[in-house]
């Protein structure tokens, strides 16, 4: 499985993590190319359905990254998201899904270095888990 390259979907908050990714880019900080980015207005915009949909479509892992607590552009979006994700993560774990496939992080616009570390860590963890099997939609059964 060593040559397995996971595909990871990342939902990045426009105001922090997305800018953090930008900073990592302009600072030429290296990180694994396994992620695909969807920019969202706020981590609170991310519906659990989006995460499940990614897993269904064959992504091996999903990362949602937003502003640090207290830094939300909309005051409280990330606080509400935090509750939602806490429950989702527990629910998936309870069902028997590998909990590390779905990850959450806080990365600010100034944390280019942290962004690259987060991506490296998620990629590594998901790589170790191997390709996703649960919830993946197989056409034609």
């Amino acid at each position: 499985m060593s040559d397995f390259e996971p595909k990871i979907m990342t939902f990045l908050c426009n105001w922090c993590s997305y800018a953090g990714a930008d900073l990592a880019g302009v600072s030429r900080i290296q990180y694994p190319p396994n992620t695909r980015v969807i920019r969202v207005p706020c981590s609170g915009r991310v519906d659990p359905l989006f995460i499940l949909k990614c897993l269904q479509d064959g992504y091996d892992g999903v990362l949602v990254s937003g502003c640090h607590p207290g830094d939300c552009h909309y005051i409280s979006g990330n606080y509400v998201a935090r509750r939602k994700f806490a429950v989702l993560k527990k629910a998936l774990e309870f069902m028997g899904m590998e909990p590390d496939r779905v990850q959450f992080s806080w990365v600010s616009a100034g944390e280019g270095e942290k962004f690259s570390q987060v991506i490296s860590k998620v990629t590594e963890t998901v790589k170790a888990l191997g390709p996703a099997k649960k919830l993946v939609k197989r056409i034609g059964r």
Partner: peptide, 12 residues
Amino acid sequence: TFREDDKQEFIM
């Protein structure tokens, strides 16, 4: 709703 000090052990 939320509390500022909600547990966040699951956040990386």
